[in-house]
């Protein structure tokens, strides 16, 4: 079981879970994933000390009004690494979290032992426009994000009749919209910067991803020098949730190998 921490990073309150032992691995969640320590994280925690913060405004964490661009989140997590006195780390992220991780990697690649991006959004891909999830009612959202819709239960919010729960969900959507509404789910500057990433990079992708489909994976693989792409046959946009053992093994093996190599 992970331990819970509350700290302040350059004036911004952070809610953080951490667990496991071994080299430090920072995991950045996607929308709806805040604070949800999953079997995926358990499995990673067998080989790494997993640090799992909530993005400000997500999962009931207090909002940070100063965060208005995706790079603000990237700097926020660089500050968190300093606050935790972590030097070089393994960095992993899913979807929005993968986008933030990629932004960080373009800034401080030398600080990363490895980078694992699980179906990140964040770049413009010719021939693809991300479906506008903000406009979707729950059934359509679930059908778009998941391959096996039953798996969505793992992310179901608690008491949907409670004012506090609804206000927290509204806060999370606002925090998400602040950085991603327009341009929707990407930073026009990121793609041409991906070539700066020197950290060994693993891309994990669900073969049935309808948010950021395989055509996006190919673009990422093309832009990040030497990136390795692994696909997962029974997953949609969240393979670490739909196939936790396989994805955790892929990430742990990839990151672990970079640990030994040094």
């Amino acid at each position: 079981m992970p331990s819970q921490h509350r700290l302040t990073v350059r004036g911004t309150p952070v809610e953080l879970q951490s667990g496991g032992s071994g080299p430090a691995l920072l995991f950045l969640h996607g929308a709806g994933g805040a604070g949800r320590w999953l079997p995926f994280h358990d499995q990673l925690a067998r080989r790494f000390t997993v640090y799992f913060p909530k993005h400000p405004g997500h999962g009931g964490a207090p909002a940070a009004e100063w965060i208005e661009h995706i790079s603000d989140l990237a700097f926020h997590y660089l500050d968190l690494l300093d606050e935790l006195k972590l030097g070089r780390v393994h960095l992993a992220g899913s979807s929005l979290g993968g986008w933030i991780a990629a932004e960080m990697a373009t800034m401080v690649s030398h600080r990363l032992k490895s980078l694992a991006l699980i179906a990140p959004v964040g770049i413009k891909v010719d021939g693809w426009i991300y479906p506008f999830l903000f406009a979707m009612e729950l059934p359509q959202l679930v059908a778009t994000v998941f391959h096996d819709q039953a798996k969505a239960l793992a992310l179901a919010p608690g008491d949907l009749t409670g004012i506090d729960t609804l206000a927290e969900l509204y806060r999370e959507r606002a925090a998400l919209a602040r950085v991603s509404w327009n341009p929707y789910l990407y930073n026009p500057l990121l793609r041409r910067r991906l070539g700066r990433i020197t950290a060994p990079t693993l891309l994990c992708w669900g073969e049935h991803d309808q948010v950021s489909p395989l055509v996006c994976a190919e673009a990422w693989a093309k832009e990040i020098p030497g990136a390795e792409l692994r696909t997962f046959a029974a997953s949609g946009h969240l393979p670490h949730l739909e196939e936790p053992e396989a994805v955790a093994a892929a990430v742990a093996d990839f990151c672990g190998a970079r640990e030994v190599a040094r």
Binding site: A63, F134, M136, I163, L166, Y170, R173, A174, A177
Partner: peptide, 18 residues
């Protein structure tokens, strides 16, 4: 979802509306 796009209301207005 169309009536209430994210951040259109402040969180306190959102709470009052509920």
């Amino acid at each position: 979802t169309f009536w209430l796009p994210p951040g259109y209301l402040t969180e306190s207005s959102f709470r009052r509306s509920l």
